[in-house]
């Protein structure tokens, strides 16, 4: 099968995401679920009396049974899950997302949507800045057009406002059933707020995605005056760039990232770093090794 033409963002690929633990739900899908099903990975043998399914009689096992009972193969149930993206669209997320160049966030969300729908899961999105952005949200759906549409909408929505308190309110709308939730944010909020958010998502399998920009983590090496403006608060800061400050700056960024990692580990998974641009391979690697 050929990839979708890149009319709405970069080409999209399937992603090997996985839900930690077993999914619940009756709708058939691609994820290990609670219960037994008729298809998929072998689980155990059962007696035909217990499970009168003549089509799945395991002849070999029946013959090897010293008691001569007829054995029926039981399989794991595989269920469909909901894949959600909880997207922080506060002002800080507008950094380098002016709709001109690449938009890694839109790329990532569209890629997740694409992959989820391709995997016969449902995809949904919850976006919030300081207030929940209901009109940007996507209800759990398997509709095919969603990735492209989402990509276009997110590209046009740089994010605004101060703080991401809206996220906490918005995650209430997630389904009760355990879902895979990608929390996409720069996590440049107070540690307590991060933990509140992660705590509110206890029911779900949370996969954080940290949106980072190497430009602000490692400043330009030249001497000079750099005046920064906080995209959320508008606060200005003047910085006298020099090697010692640059080193301090990098160390500062490292420390912040390490603290973040600490939180994420406490709440489950390590985070994926979306640095500068969306690298589908790296994301796939991440999902395989550390994530779902």
């Amino acid at each position: 099968m050929s990839p979708a033409p890149a009319r709405d963002g970069p080409p999209r690929f399937d992603l090997p995401y996985r839900l930690f633990g077993r999914a619940r739900g009756v709708a058939t899908g691609g994820h290990k679920a609670l219960g037994q099903g008729a298809n998929g990975a072998f689980l155990r043998h059962a007696s035909l009396l217990e499970q009168p399914d003549a089509r799945r009689i395991d002849m070999r096992a029946s013959l090897l049974d010293p008691f001569g009972g007829l054995k029926v193969r039981r399989f794991e149930h595989r269920a469909r899950i909901d894949v959600f993206v909880v997207l922080d669209l506060s002002g800080s997320m507008s950094f380098r997302r002016d709709g001109q160049g690449e938009d890694p966030v839109a790329d990532l969300c569209a890629a997740i949507a694409h992959a989820a729908i391709r995997s016969h899961d449902r995809f949904g999105l919850i976006a919030a800045g300081p207030e929940p952005l209901a009109e940007l949200g996507v209800r759990a759906t398997a509709r095919r057009g969603v990735p492209d549409e989402l990509w276009r909408r997110l590209s046009a929505e740089p994010g605004a406002g101060r703080g991401s308190r809206g996220l906490l309110a918005a995650v209430e709308e997630l389904p009760q059933r355990r879902a895979l939730v990608f929390v996409v944010s720069d996590f440049l909020m107070p540690q307590a707020e991060i933990e509140d958010l992660l705590g509110a998502l206890w029911r779900h399998d949370v996969a954080p995605v940290v949106v980072r920009s190497s430009a602000v983590e490692a400043p330009p090496p030249r001497f000079g005056l750099l005046e920064t403006r906080d995209l959320e608060t508008g606060r200005r800061r003047l910085l006298v760039m020099r090697p010692s400050l640059r080193e301090k700056w990098i160390a500062h960024a490292r420390a912040r990232r390490a603290a973040l990692d600490e939180s994420f580990r406490r709440f489950g998974r390590p985070a994926f770093d979306l640095v500068d641009r969306f690298d589908a391979d790296a994301f796939a690697d991440h999902l395989l090794t550390g994530g779902a």
Binding site: S92, V216, T228, R229, L231, L245, W249
Partner: peptide, 13 residues
Amino acid sequence: LRLSGVPSAEVAP
């Protein structure tokens, strides 16, 4: 000076 937008003022030490 021309300002450089940053996600958060805290990115700099």
